[in-house]
C-alpha cells in the first residue's frame, strides 16, 4: 500500500516527473477554473439568477463572512488566497467518492506546499499592512526575549498545518483501504461518507487557521497606555 500519491509516477525525466499528486491537482485546477468560468460567463446582476450562480455566490459570501468573523476587517483582500485554500482542499476531499481518485491533499508534499504558501503569505500580508519594520518588530512583542519563541512558533505552526492536513486525509484514505480489504461492502462506504465530513472539516480548519495567522500578522500593536484600553474595533485600521 502506498502512503502518498507521490509514489505513483506517470512520467519522469531527471528531476522532473509527473506523479499522481500533480496530475490530480491539475485535474482539480481545471475543474475549478473551467467550472467557475462556465458559471460566471453569464452572470446576472438582477434579482433572478441561475442556480449555479446562486451556489457560487453563497460559497463566496460564506467565505467572506468567515474571514470577517476571524477579525480581518477587509476580507476581500484575503479572499483569493484563503478562499482558494478552502475550495482546493474541500474539492480535493469531495472527489474521494470518485473511484480511482487519489486526493492530492493526501500527499505530504501538497500539504507542505500549502503550509509553505501560508508561511510566506502571512509575513507578506503583515508587511503590506504594517510595513517591514513594524512587522519585524512584532516578533519582539511583548519583549525581545520572545523573538526566538515567536520564530519557532511560526515554523512549528507551519509544520503543524502540513502534518495535520496530511495526517487526516492520509489516515482516512488508509482506513478506507484497510476496511476495503476486511469488510469490502457496506462499511467502507460509511467511512467514505465520514471522510467527506472530515475532509470538509479539515478544509475549514486549514483555511481558518491561515486566516487567524494572517489576522495576527496584520494586527497593529499600539503602544501601551495607562488609560483604558482601546476598543476592539481599533485592532485594525
Amino acid at each position: 500500500m502506498r502512503l502518498s500519491p507521490d509514489e505513483v509516477i506517470y512520467w519522469q525525466h531527471g528531476l522532473f516527473k509527473i506523479n499522481a499528486t500533480l496530475a490530480f491537482t491539475w485535474g482539480l485546477m481545471i475543474v475549478l477554473a473551467v467550472g467557475s468560468k462556465l458559471v460566471t460567463r453569464h452572470l446576472s446582476a438582477g434579482l433572478s439568477r441561475s442556480r449555479w450562480q446562486n451556489l457560487l455566490e453563497i460559497i463566496v459570501i460564506a467565505i467572506e463572512k468567515q474571514i470577517e468573523d476571524v477579525g480581518l476587517r477587509h476580507p476581500r483582500r484575503y479572499l483569493a488566497f484563503l478562499g482558494t485554500l478552502f475550495l482546493f482542499i474541500a474539492v480535493a476531499s469531495l472527489c474521494t467518492v470518485l473511484p480511482g481518485y487519489k486526493p492530492p491533499t493526501g500527499s505530504l508534499s501538497t500539504t507542505a506546499a500549502l503550509a509553505l504558501c501560508v508561511f510566506v503569505a502571512v509575513p507578506l500580508f503583515g508587511i503590506r499592512r504594517q510595513g517591514l519594520f513594524r512587522y519585524l518588530a512584532s516578533y519582539t512583542h511583548p519583549t525581545v526575549i520572545m523573538l526566538p519563541f515567536n520564530i519557532i512558533g511560526d515554523l512549528s505552526r507551519t509544520l503543524a498545518l502540513a502534518v495535520r492536513l496530511f495526517g487526516n486525509i492520509m489516515s482516512e484514505e488508509m482506513i478506507v483501504g484497510i476496511l476495503l480489504t476486511i469488510t469490502p461492502f457496506l462499511f467502507p462506504i460509511v467511512m467514505t461518507v465520514l471522510g467527506l465530513l472530515t475532509g470538509m472539516v479539515q478544509a475549514y480548519i486549514f483555511s481558518i487557521l491561515a486566516a487567524v495567522y494572517i489576522a495576527a500578522a496584520t494586527q497593529i500593536h499600539k503602544p501601551r497606555r495607562t488609560a483604558a484600553p482601546a476598543p476592539a474595533s481599533n485592532r485594525e485600521t
Binding site: K17, T25, L85, L87, L116
Partner: peptide, 26 residues
C-alpha cells in the same frame, strides 16, 4: 514522504490556482 520537486510544483500550482480563481470566480 516529501518530494521537494512536488512541493515546489504544488506551491506553483496553488499560486496559479489562486490567480485563476481570482480571475474566473471571485
Amino acid at each position: 514522504l516529501i518530494d521537494w520537486f512536488t512541493v515546489g510544483a504544488q506551491a506553483l500550482n496553488f499560486l496559479i490556482l489562486v490567480g485563476l480563481m481570482q480571475r474566473f470566480l471571485y
